[in-house]
Design a protein around this nucleic acid. Structure first.
Length: 687
RNA sequence: GCCGAGGUGGCGGAAUGGCAGACGCGACGGUCUCAAAAACCGUUGUCCGCAAGGACGUGGGGGUUCGAAUCCCCCUCUCGGCACCA
């Protein structure tokens, strides 16, 4: 029997280390010094995906800091195109999750353009998605961290520029990202030359340009980019119109025109528009050797180092002579110490010998992002006892992909993106057959809230399952959760509403075992009616389960229980129809309330487990009511409801409708001029 | 700002072109009880009315249709994602 993989045990994480070494071996893992996100509470770095609104995903009130550190990255950007394009294969995924991933990857097609800089041999390279606005460039902007800043700045302006750059560096990510703040910047005194017009263009430094995207420098087109427009207004820089709306008036207004339109004031390119304009300018630049088309992504490589004392140690040895040396496969796993102290403070852990030269060396003291563990556990499930590899490739190819995957939306661009990346990497390694996507169908649950906030341990607003089991029982708790709201929606927990499911389950118990406790209060119950209700319930509950509509499935079960109760109160017999209804109710309820279900199954004479019993079959003939309620409308307003036999023709229905006094009254004695008939449902008479 | 999902009784929600409010919570009235709890029965969108009945009603406004919570347009608010990404 397979056992669950446990990421905290060496049996599992040795294979995470194995995979880490495979990434390194394939050139897809690298160590790089860069400005990274740092959570001051956890005292560790974070991946971009784990920074939410400028804060650590585990501490929403704690802004991340930026630190220059040398860290390990996985080259997920090498897979950006495939991760984006293959979203089209994921028809079983919710559209919004696919959209979120597409936005996160953020592919954009643009052109890198080289601007000559006055007094310099080397060009200033910028990235733009709008080469068709090139004639509208009125200034250039460098990010404060741009390497050219110091060099293009005039001597007498250096102090001012340096002060600005220093201030920008001190600002937190949140301050700098805030779109609400006014744009700031400083002129360097340097000039670039427009490659198409040879016009001199002043070069500024401003923190609204980010070093981490594109080339860290932009050509500013205030007429057609809102940010540039705001900056130009702030510093009284010229604004030129070079794109005219296809329809409507020309001229510089109170905002940049960022749509596509006809090129104007652009020499020989005038009149071109849209993709043609893009292509024409791009081609011209490429032919002139001053530009080339490039594809850029918002997605960054995945920073996987973590400065934690838990997790999976990165299997690398730092040797003064040999450099970074992978721990040989046969020496895995590198075991995590049990003491709760940073690995960097634990000489017993990090002191080792270089596997290559045998000299004293140090282990890498970082552990891997725990999202690494969750990125392939589903593959380990296909062969949990495999001892030579992370998993058996043949079994993985056989069992994958996961047909139905369920998780919270909060993982839309964390776990679900990383897992797709792993699957594609392992596909390239020939380890997963032809399976390029790990999860065929995805269902995203909503989050459970209480007092208006997502339930969490840190907020202390959670409900311990043990407490729920203690108070009302596991079955009642499960039925309540199913009943609370549609599963894909966020749900607000209510402490008292669980009373409904509790009463419902108690009623089911009494119906199945103590039907004599219900008193007869009227008459008229029939076996046929009970059987119909039972078959109707089979259809509804079965369809609702299949469609993940658990809340309405519970409602349908409650209605069946009510039908049983009414049958007793109506003096109905407890013969074949009764037994069928009770046993059906038990079977339909069993997936949500298995303790009660199995107990009742056994006590009512069921053989074996209810869970193994055949699922009830719905029979249309037995589920159909012989009569229907026909609503009669006059001029679209409901005036009468008639109980009529099923399947009346329009003429028959009209005849019956006209016999009604109320209908006649509202028709004022006139014959209806038009009649709309929906068989077995409604007839609308228009005077 | 952009993208997405939404707004229905006191509350959670049902109904995706055809009886708005299924199912449940809560509330109110009743049965039982010395009493209470539990259980059971009944009522419960709003307004007018003794009633029969009528009018209004799915965030707001307009439209399409015999008929709109449902489709279209505009506005508004809430939630989620992205956010100075060039």
């Amino acid at each position: 029997m397979p056992t669950s993989p446990s990421p905290c045990l060496p049996d599992y994480y040795r294979w995470a280390q194995w995979l880490c070494l495979l990434f390194i071996d394939q050139g897809l893992a690298y160590r790089h010094l860069s400005l990274v996100n740092w959570c001051p509470i956890d005292k560790t770095v974070l991946a971009n995906e784990q920074v939410i609104n400028g804060a650590c995903w585990r501490h929403p009130d704690t802004p991340v800091e930026k630190r220059d550190l040398e860290q390990w990255f996985l080259k997920i950007t090498d897979y950006a195109d495939r991760l984006l394009d293959d979203l089209a294969l994921l028809e079983g995924w919710p559209e919004h999750v696919r959209t979120m991933q597409a936005n996160w990857i953020g592919r954009s097609e643009g052109v890198e353009v080289d601007f000559k800089v006055r007094g310099f041999a080397e060009p200033l390279r910028v990235y733009t998605t709008r080469p068709d606005t090139l004639f509208g460039v009125t200034f250039m902007v460098l990010a404060p961290e741009h390497p050219l800043v110091e060099r293009v700045t005039e001597r007498e302006r250096l102090p001012e520029v340096r002060e600005y750059v220093e201030r920008a560096k001190r600002e937190t990510e949140i301050e700098r990202l805030s779109t609400a703040t006014k744009k700031t910047g400083v002129f360097t005194g340097g000039y670039a030359l427009n490659p198409l017009t040879d016009e001199a263009i002043p070069i500024w430094v401003a923190d609204y340009v980010l070093m981490g995207y594109g080339t860290g420098a932009i050509m500013a087109v205030p007429g057609h980019d809102q940010r540039d427009f705001e900056f130009a207004r702030e510093y009284s820089l010229p604004i030129v119109e070079v794109i005219a709306p296809e329809s409507g008036k020309q001229g510089v207004g109170e905002a940049a025109f960022t749509g596509h339109g006809r090129m104007v004031n652009s020499g020989r390119f005038d009149g071109l528009s849209g993709q043609d304009a893009f292509d024409a300018v791009a081609k011209h630049l490429e032919e002139g050797g001053i530009g080339k088309r490039v594809t850029r992504y918002r997605l960054r490589d995945w920073l996987i180092s973590r400065q934690r004392y838990w997790g999976c140690p990165i299997p690398i040895v730092h040797c003064k002579v040999c450099g970074l040396v992978p721990v040989p496969l046969e020496q895995l796993p590198v075991v995590l110490p049990t003491e709760n102290k940073p690995l960097a403070d634990n000489p017993e852990f990090y002191q080792t010998k270089c596997p290559r030269c045998g000299r004293d060396a140090q282990r890498d003291t970082d552990t891997m992002d725990t999202f690494i563990d969750s990125s392939w556990y589903f593959l380990r499930y296909t062969s949990t006892h495999e001892e030579r590899l992370p998993f058996d490739p043949e079994l993985a190819a056989h069992w994958m992909a996961v047909d139905q995957y369920t998780g919270g939306v909060e993982h839309a661009i964390l776990h679900l993106l990383y897992s797709r990346f792993f699957q594609k990497f392992l596909f390239d390694q020939g380890m997963v057959g032809d399976v390029v996507e790990p999860f065929t169908r995805l269902f995203t649950q909503g989050m459970l809230k209480r007092h208006g906030q997502v339930m969490s341990k840190s907020k202390g607003n959670g409900i311990a399952p043990e407490q729920m089991v203690e108070n009302d029982g596991a079955d009642a708790g499960r039925v309540y959760l199913m009943f609370l709201a549609p599963p894909q929606d966020d749900a607000e927990w209510s402490d008292r509403a669980i009373a409904g499911p509790v009463r419902f389950l108690q009623k089911v118990w009494r119906l199945a075992l103590e039907p004599e406790s219900f008193s007869v209060t009227r008459s008229g119950a029939t076996e046929e009616l009970l059987t119909r209700r039972t078959h109707q319930a089979i259809k509804r509950v079965t369809d609702d389960y299949a469609g993940y509509r658990f809340n309405t499935a519970v409602a349908a079960l409650m209605e069946l229980a009510n039908a049983l109760e009414e049958h007793l109160q109506g003096g109905g017999s407890r013969a074949a129809a009764w037994d069928f209804a009770v046993r059906t109710l038990v079977l339909l309820l069993n997936p949500m309330a298995p303790h009660l279900g199995e107990e009742l199954w056994e006590r009512t004479g069921g053989v074996g487990l209810a869970a193994d019993a055949a699922w009830p079959e719905y029979e249309a003939a037995l589920a159909t009511d012989p009569t229907v309620t026909l609503v009669v409308q006059v001029n679209g307003v409901r005036r009468e409801a008639l109980e009529v036999p099923r399947g009346l023709s329009e003429a028959q229905a009209l005849e019956r409708a006209l016999q009604s006094e109320r209908v006649a009254h509202f028709l004022n004695g006139d014959k209806p001029s038009r009649v709309f008939y929906v068989p077995d449902k409604l007839i609308n008479l228009v005077p």
